[in-house]
Computed example of a mutant assay.
Amino acid sequence: MSSPILDLAGVTLEVNHLPRGVRFYTQVLGLPLLEHDEDRGVAHFRVNDAQTLTLWKPVTRQPNDPRLAPLHARGASHLHYAWQIQPHELDRCKALLDEHGLPWQEIDLGTPERPDPTVYFFDPFGHGLELRGVDLADERQPVYPPTPEDGERGPHALPVLGLREVALAFGDYPAMKERLPRAYGFALAKEQPDRDFAQFTLGPEPEPDGNGTPRRWLYAWDPQVGLADMFGGDHVYAQFYARVEEVRGRVRAAGLPHVEESGVLAVRDPEGHVFEFRPPR
C-alpha cells in the first residue's frame, strides 16, 4: 500500500533565547523572518516556498500555539536535522562556517566509488545541523523539489535549498518501528545492521537513502549519540505534507490523541512527539 506521507513541511525547535535564535538563523542560514513575537515566544522563518522553520521559547503557563494545547506540544530539544545544498557549494559552506566562527566536522557518508561528503555543526542551543549535497537532476524527487534561491540568502549565509531530514529519539525502539508505519503510514526504508536506527522515506514508497537523492527523510533511533556527537530530538514537533484523510483513519484506529483544524491534523505520539499532517499546497 502506498504511504500517505508526501514530504517534509517544517520543524520547530525549542530555544531559551529567542533574539539569539533569530540572529543565528537569519545571519548564518539566511532565512527570511516571517514572524517574531517575544510575548508568545515564537519566531517563524521561510525556508522555501514549501517549508518553514520555527523557534519556540517556552513560556510558563502558556502554550506557544494554543491550537496544540490539548497535545502539550513542545519544540524539539537537541534535534539533529539536515539541510540540502548543491554539492559544489560544500567548500564554500565550510568557509562560511569558519567566517561565522562555527566549528564543523566533515564525514563522508558515501562509498569510494561515489563519495558523499557531509558537514555537521551545532546551533547556539545544541541542535545538530547537517549540510548534505543533493543532485537536483536525480529522478527520486520529493513532492516539492529543492530549488536554488539565486543568491537570495545573502553573501555570508549558507546556500541551503531546503530541509532534508529530522532525527527523532524513541525510548522503545521496537514499538516505534511497528507504530510509525501502522498508526501514521510512514514508509520504512531500511534499518542499520549495527545499531537501532530506522530510516523512513517521506514519500509514497520506500527508497534508498543517500548518494544525492532529493527525497526527504524521517530518521528514528533509540537514545544514543549519533554521528558528530548528535542526539535525536526529544518531544519533537514536526510537520509533514500528507493525504490527511488517510492518516486520520490510521490515527483514529490507533486511538492516538489528536486535534484537527482547517484540514490540518496534529497527533501526539506515545513518546511525546507531535506530528502535524497538512494537505498538499
Rank of each mutant, 00 (worst) to 15 (best):
His80Ala: 04
Glu130Leu: 00
Phe125Gly: 03
Leu161His: 02
Ala43Tyr: 00
Arg132Pro: 07
Pro174Asp: 03
Arg23Ala: 13
Pro63Asp: 02
Asn16Asp: 06
Arg243Leu: 14
Ala198Gly: 12
Pro4Ala: 03
Thr60Gln: 15
Glu139Gln: 15
Pro214Cys: 07
Gly128Lys: 01
Asp49Val: 15
Val47Ser: 08
Val15Thr: 00
Ala137Ser: 13
Pro146Arg: 14
Glu89Asn: 13
Val225Pro: 10
Leu158Met: 03
Pro145Gly: 08
Ala189Trp: 05
Phe186Asp: 02
Glu152Gly: 12
Phe240Cys: 01
Ile107Phe: 08
Gly75Asn: 02
Gly110Ile: 06
Asp7Asn: 01
Val11Asn: 01
Leu163Tyr: 03
Arg268Asp: 03
Asp222Gly: 15
Phe170Leu: 11
Gly75Arg: 00
Val259Met: 05
Tyr120Arg: 01
Phe240Trp: 07
Arg92Glu: 14
Asp135Cys: 09
Glu245Thr: 11
Asp222Glu: 15
Leu96Gly: 05
Leu218His: 03
Arg153Cys: 09
Lys177Pro: 00
Gln105Thr: 14
Gly41Pro: 02
Leu129Ser: 09
Asp150Lys: 14
Gly154Thr: 02
Val251Met: 05
Arg61Trp: 11
Glu271Met: 08
Gly151Gln: 10
Glu152Thr: 13
Val22Trp: 05
Asn211Met: 15
Gln224Pro: 10
Asp135Gln: 14
Gln141Thr: 11
Pro142Trp: 00
Pro63Gly: 02
Arg182Glu: 06
Gly151Cys: 10
Phe200Arg: 01
Arg250Leu: 13
His156Gln: 14
Glu207Asp: 11
Asn48Phe: 10
Pro206Leu: 03
Asp65Val: 07
Leu55Ser: 01
Gln51Ala: 12
Asp135Gly: 12
Pro115Tyr: 05
Asp37Glu: 03
Gln27Gly: 10
Pro181Cys: 09
Val274Pro: 00
His36Leu: 14
Leu227Cys: 12
Val166Ala: 09
Pro58Met: 00
